[in-house]
Design a protein around this nucleic acid. Sequence first.
RNA 1: GCUGGAGUAGCUCAGCCCGGUAGAGCAGCCGCCUUGUAAGCGGCCGGUCGCAGGUUCGAAUCCUGUCUCCAGCUCCA
Length: 646
Amino acid sequence: MTVSITADGRDGFALAKEAGASGPVAAVVGGKVRDLAHVPASGETVEILTQADEAGREVVRHSTAHVLAQAVLRLYPGARYAIGPPIDDGFYYDFEVADPFTPEDLDRIESEMRAIVKANQRFERAEISSEEGVATFVDQPYKLEIIRGVAEGVDALEQQGAGGEVLSLYRNVDPSGHTAFVDLCRGPHVPGTGRIKAFKLLRSAGAYWRGDETKPMLQRIYGTAWESKDALAAYLHRLEEAERRDHRRIGRELELYSWEEEVGPGIALWHPKGAIVRQALEGLSRDLHLKRGYKPVYTPHIGKAKLWESSGHLDHFQDNMFPRMEYEGGDYFAKPMNCPFHVLIYRSKTRSYRELPYRLSELGTVYRNERSGAVHGLLRSRGFTQDDSHIFCTPDQVVDELVEVVDFLRELYAAVGMGPDAVRFSTKPDNAIGTQEQWDLAESAIEQALQKSGLDFRVDEGDGAFYGPKIDIDVRDAIGRYWQLCTIQVDFQLPDRFGLQYIDDEGHRRRPVMIHRALFGSIERFFGVLVEHFAGAFPTWLSPVQAALIPIADRHASYAYAAARKLSERGLRVEVDDSSDTMGAKIRRRQLEKVPYMLIVGDDEQAAETVSVRRRSGKETRGVSVGDFARDLELEVSERRVEPSI
RNA sequence: GCUGGAGUAGCUCAGCCCGGUAGAGCAGCCGCCUUGUAAGCGGCCGGUCGCAGGUUCGAAUCCUGUCUCCAGCUCCA
């Protein structure tokens, strides 16, 4: 808990004590986090951060990163240290070392860190000039680069714990007064390493200096730090939980999809159970698109090189495309996007302003050449299906159309109980085509639409598509991770390139504007997120098997089949488990398969024409009439309810 | 693409360090059992140890190359 107190000329330590803060690590003064040793001006309101505050944890993690660097420098003479910021749930530090770290190295480093924590070295701040900095870090090229950056006012590394308006460093001084370690750092830090209560190194991996793949690759060590052993244990448990929800693992266990080496990396095979869920999801998408005035189309998987030249893809997107297929009469490419085909459908006849907005939609499967290290299950694949639409409209209609798209998105996501949770507005990138005026118009339309829709958003400068700025929308899954799904883009370029026109109300030829939008984004990725979000326990309308009949003994099997028929007649997906397993084993199996409803039938049920309903939660109701259950289940499914209603 | 780690039965894993031609549990199949809310019992089947070379009398085990997967970086729906 943060506590506040008014400064009276004493330092943060005294104020924290006065305020009764337990485990103080830093103070917030005038919106800035400061060391406890800092003396705030009298009358200032000071907030004392403790180790259990999120901002306090950040300080602890940052300090732990320094301890990591000290341990590495001790154990690996000649190592160069680069940057070591706190991150969500932990920290990392990047090093240049002769050999990459092995798991055994991490154990050694961790022991060394424990010794440093035990020694309870003080963190001492000093503000220095550039010259002093250069002298201190004379043999540390990465530190020198940061010093130059601060001198030039480059604040790119601000987030990474270095940089800022003044150059400062932190010394670790052990109780005997000896300086054990010094690092260029903006701070703040905990008073002493003894404040670090619980930490663990997690893994090492390569990382490019400043995230730039043309720069040297450094060795990064990731770790986590918490205010107590319990908090650390809880975090490690959360990591295990995330692993348990991994869609690749659940997909295999529930027989939803698989990948085979013979097919190629990043291209999934959909098994019957996965396919039925996918069809349910696609059915939702199709229903809502029709309801909102979109016209369905189908377009091919390949198109001639000429088409991709006209669209600009060969010039701007070829690295992401599968290689050319040579063929007599013209080479072909597998489509990485659906837009050029939709454009040609639009252009197939003269269009009137009365037709606009003209909305084409397709579940279009595209193929993209993802770099080998990027492929990741369904969340990053080389073949994926977009719920793709292109809206052709007049410039005046753009804002309203964007607002309508956002409304659509909300309806769609609500059907599965998810986001939108984070919205990004991405502006003109370096490889952009088109005029500045067009980009300005497109960007202002997006901004207006976002405001009208009441969405909070963050701006990502230079992150737009080559043909237009975009809105990207992320959802947050059950354990707090964010995934980018939806993308909405405003495009003046393709209409130009393909010479699109409409006739306005005065008979003049005008150029329409295009909106590209995919709400699920990719069915595959959305599906993967959905699996992780629900940990495989889909809402009933999506479940591969919605109800399983479990006869207690063989003599109940025919009654079970009769009851099952009453459900399947209503279009429900139902199975009868007439295996020779015991009832307990049957229940266990269906429970692991995450079937929403198990209907147990024995002598009592058979006599009364009822079923005993066992929910996935374990809750049970006996004596439910088959007819009532069938009716209720059909309603739950047809209304696509996220929560069970029976 | 880059850095590190890993590939043994459908799945989870042992065997590898210290070469002597593969083993468990679950799943599957067959049989017995006829069951009241998360694993009944017995039997059987199942692997050219990712792939290709090399070293050796002999390679799952040692060496080289390659593919795939995992974590991270970069890039993206």
